[in-house]
């Protein structure tokens, strides 16, 4: 029972409490860049979720199977960067060959994720928090879904903002950043739950 609530808590904390975008401020580049339309925000969010889960799993395996036995844990950042970049490339090639529909909907966003700090950040955080394999899986899944949730909400707000009479100095990016700040305040309100 304790285990169950712990794992459920991991998904929930990834989803809202320790949200990658609004509580940990990771991956803000696509958050601002790919959030002008809801359709592209959904594509980006799904691609990030997918890559996040796969990358975290493989980083986890590499860390505990190679780095820990050889006592080179301190090199995890640079090795994770290499691994994630190669994995994203590999995923792109594989989806192009075998999952054409998936490639057509996510393909545009995959190269953007190669250098997304949310993916690297979650892979490193999993190690820092000392989660086991299932924990890693669930926390990455929760974080990815959290990214999806927030970027879709944000893009919906930005679509509405387009219609409003905004003072000239605030038009475009400034009002988007102000909006993001307010959303962040709202999400930090989840802070004390778990």
């Amino acid at each position: 029972m304790n285990d169950l609530s712990f794992y459920f808590g991991l998904i929930f904390s990834g989803l809202v409490i320790k949200n990658v975008l609004l509580a940990q401020f990771l991956g803000l580049c696509p958050f601002i860049g790919v959030s002008k339309k809801t359709s592209s925000a959904v594509g980006m969010g799904l691609a990030v979720t997918f890559v996040l889960v796969v990358a975290s799993m493989i980083s986890y395996a590499f860390y505990y199977l190679v780095q820990v036995p050889f006592n080179i844990e301190f090199l995890r950042t640079i090795s994770f960067v290499i691994i994630i970049a190669s994995i994203v490339q590999l995923i792109e090639v594989i989806t192009k060959k075998y999952m054409t529909t998936l490639y057509e909907s996510l393909g545009v966003y995959l190269p953007l994720i190669t250098t997304n700090c949310a993916v690297l950040g979650i892979a490193l955080l999993n190690i820092n928090y000392g989660y086991d394999f299932l924990g890693t899986l669930l926390y990455s899944l929760g974080s990815g879904l959290g990214f999806l949730l927030v970027i879709v909400l944000f893009s919906a707000i930005r679509e509405k903002l387009e219609l409003l009479d905004i003072p000239k100095a605030f038009q475009g990016l400034p009002i988007a950043l102000v909006t993001a700040a307010f959303m962040s305040l709202a999400f930090i309100g989840f802070g004390g739950i778990l």
Partner: peptide, 26 residues
């Protein structure tokens, strides 16, 4: 050790990508 491990890692990933791009070429 570190150099060897990273050399192997780099070569392995590079080979993997190279093979994938040839084998899975569309």
């Amino acid at each position: 050790e570190i150099l060897v491990i990273f050399l192997i890692l780099g070569v392995l990933l590079g080979l993997l990508l190279a093979i994938a791009s040839v084998k899975l070429h569309v």
